[in-house]
Design a protein around this nucleic acid. Sequence first.
RNA 1: GGUCCGAUAGCUCAACUGGAUAGAGCAUCAGAUUUCUAAUCUGACGGUUCGGGGUUCGAUUCCCUGUCGGAUCACCA
Length: 595
Amino acid sequence: MNLDQILRAAVKQSITSLFGESPDNFQVQPTNQEFEGSHTVVCFPLTKLSRKGPEETARQIGDNLVKTSGFVERFNVVKGFLNLVLTDRLWIDAFATIFSNPRFGQLPSNDQEIMVEYSSPNTNKPLHLGHLRNNFLGYSVAALFEANGYIVHKVQIINDRGIHICKSMVAWKKHGNGETPEISGMKGDHLVGKYYVRFDQVYKAEVSDLIAKGLNEKEAEKQAPVMQEAVEMLRKWEQRDEDTVSLWKMMNTWVYSGFNGTYRRMGVDFEKLYYESETYLLGKDEVLKGVEKGIFFRKEDGSVWVDLTTDGLDQKVLLRSDGTSVYMTQDIGTAILRFREFPGIIGQVYTVGNEQEYHFKVLFLILQKLGFEWAQRCFHLSYGMVDLPTGKMKSREGTVVDADELMQEMVDEAEKQTRQLGKIEGWPADETGPLFEMIGLGALKFFLLKVDPKKRMMFDPNESIQLQGFTGPFIQYTHARIRAIVRKAVQLNINVTIEDIKQVGVLEPTEREALQTLCQYEVRLQEAMREYSPALVANFAFELAKCYNKFYQNIPIFSEADPGKLKFRIAFSTVIADTIRKAMRILGIIVPDKM
RNA sequence: GGUCCGAUAGCUCAACUGGAUAGAGCAUCAGAUUUCUAAUCUGACGGUUCGGGGUUCGAUUCCCUGUCGGAUCACCA
């Protein structure tokens, strides 16, 4: 039992013995800074049980806790809020428990499996800022599930077919002159992206040409020769035309090697990759079965629809009148396929932008109608767009922020600032590179993860690069300083046992404060998981670092006379550094020992 | 037009799902400390929580309504 559970049990017992009835739910929350105490019981809802005023109710519970619990030292009542001051003994014991548990912050396995999908890019251009938010989120949520005892399967579906890649193929064929990543020295995904942009330029020129010749915009867009070539290319691909398929394979191979480089630097990985080219025909059978069962219906022209009007949504097409699949059909098929391939999973998390909320609402509803019980544990981890101070990102206008470039800029800036501070003088060259990488990417990840996923956010490159305040590097730096203390302790040959900790009698206020935060770790983790919110973990890590800084500022550890207290503080520092490391690990951020 | 999301300090974001005088960081100003790593710490300043109603002991949170911003409603993916 952790401290929160112990306390709740005691409060519940007090209420029951005082008022003869056990409360169905009551709130225990952290006490506000301005009042004395660490935990606050909100007593307003309990007045129904006690049949007394809130203050009197609070006083009675407080009295009872002091008498019976053995660890409530004193209390104060403000309005209906019962603020509890716990004994140092309890804090120290709680800390001893954490200290002796190397797996603190990692819940035991619950034998459940879950699938997390993220990234899922198109193969016609390199990854951009939006993908960074997606990847960091997905990766982090997966880590969150792992910390909570799940076995996680990380996957993505690569949208490797369709008109978008055909556009790049057409442009390359016409204007590429056989350019390859090897010849140009460009990363494969950037090279393919270059031809996607080229296509768009040619296309636009052709369209305005046609408009000048008197066509209206829609017709011009349809009749533009390059567009027709792209459509033709797609048709050939679907017919498995040999030349087209081999061109498609070659260019996709370039893209994949580019993506792999980007993923490696981002620090994300996948257990299994799905390819749309292999799954885009799936789902048709399931839809036809649904027609037989009367779940879907067929219109006169032969197209198949689902009617969701009773669920407050519209009608949605599932098979075209020519019998071919649409996006929804594929997703139905892919979802079912995944549950077949991973029979152990209880559900799926889809990390996809919020512009597809409607799509997933419909998808999950259809799966439910088809009778798949797991559909209610499919979750769309929806996230908002990333804006720039300059405005909306638009790929056609070239205002996208490229993922590779951005990562490099962050690392460069980390190097610049670190050198300016002169902290790495005398460091061997093979250690500085990885350090800049850790700091630059840590800053980027933290910035993108600290905001509530569902909210649209502003990414300010200038601000994100700041290494002060609510940022990754601030936490990394705090960690590095704590590790310096631990190193010194090792040098001095100070060993700490659990007995040493238990012998400590009194805590400094800053110690108690940091301990209080530390004890909340598991609670916060579970809450973060329920909310699919790395932001809560980021907040926790920041809070813990701030508490420690305060403690560190006020208390010189090694000048402490009492050797018992010295040992306690070293253990305390070790555990806090460890917990910071674990929290940051969930965000995919590495914390250095030195910086 | 229908549906869904958002609006909180000058800026970027919180607020544990209805709790106390709405909190952090940045920016601004004032101070401490020159260490166990100063990428630190302490203060001050800063708010009609978009407007208007309602629900109750109590509302940033729930309901209604209006304004603004965004997304979505394809035989596209």
